[in-house]
């Protein structure tokens, strides 16, 4: 086999890797959107009568990518998920808020993930993401309302982040372990 053939094959393999990543990330975006739709069917406000509180199931996908792919995948998927869910269900206002949430949730999870498993468990990473998400949304609210008074809602949102982040992690943890046992994914 000539050097030229080998170079061609390497290039093909590389582009396959790139295509694989693109296709998988598309799949993950779809999955995240489905999770954020499914989440609307769970009447969580019937259990905790706090307006605006949600489970954050779509965050499982971001969490998964942080563990089994690159942070760039996690960032791309969560940003595109925000964009697409806003286009489908919300509007410009909701896009602003979900972007504000994602912009803080991602770094919060990346930071705590760096401390895994020495300092943080999946619960800590998930809760940090939820706290970041809620802080980002509240920050966006303060900006659009031009008032800091919205921060009086902070304790409620932090409490919600603690509970919902833990619940999400309790769903994600066993799921991740099961995925690892299939041998399809390897932790980065």
């Amino acid at each position: 086999m000539s050097d030229c053939d080998k170079a061609n094959r390497d290039a093909a393999a590389q582009s396959h890797g790139w295509l694989r990543r693109l296709a998988l990330n598309g799949l993950f975006i779809a999955m995240a959107i489905v999770l954020s739709v499914v989440e609307r069917w769970i009447p969580i406000t019937a259990l905790v009568p706090i307006p605006g509180v949600k489970l954050g199931l779509a965050n499982i996908v971001t969490l998964f990518l942080l563990f089994y792919a690159f942070w760039t995948d996690a960032a791309a998927v969560s940003l595109l998920r925000c964009l697409l869910t806003a286009l489908m269900f919300g509007g410009m206002a909701s896009l602003l808020f979900s972007l504000g949430g994602a912009m803080l949730a991602l770094p919060a999870m990346m930071l705590t993930k760096a401390g895994y498993p020495r300092w943080f468990s999946v619960i800590g990473i998930s809760v940090a993401g939820a706290v970041g998400h809620n802080l980002g949304q509240l920050g966006m609210a303060a900006l659009t309302m031009k008032s800091l008074a919205v921060f009086s809602y902070l304790p409620v949102l932090l409490g919600a982040a603690l509970v919902m982040g833990t619940l999400t992690a309790l769903v994600a943890g066993p799921f991740f372990s099961a995925m690892e046992r299939t041998g399809l994914v390897r932790r980065n």
């Binding site: 705590t112 468990s121 800590g124 706290v131 304790p155």
Partner: peptide, 27 residues
């Protein structure tokens, strides 16, 4: 996959609870 809370988890939870109790004092 590790689900048993580690020290950082407890610190995070503690910080959250602290802010929950401090913010109402301001507002």
């Amino acid at each position: 996959m590790r689900l048993r809370p580690k020290s950082g988890d407890w610190v995070l939870a503690g910080l959250i609870l602290l802010v929950i109790f401090l913010v109402p004092l301001v507002f």
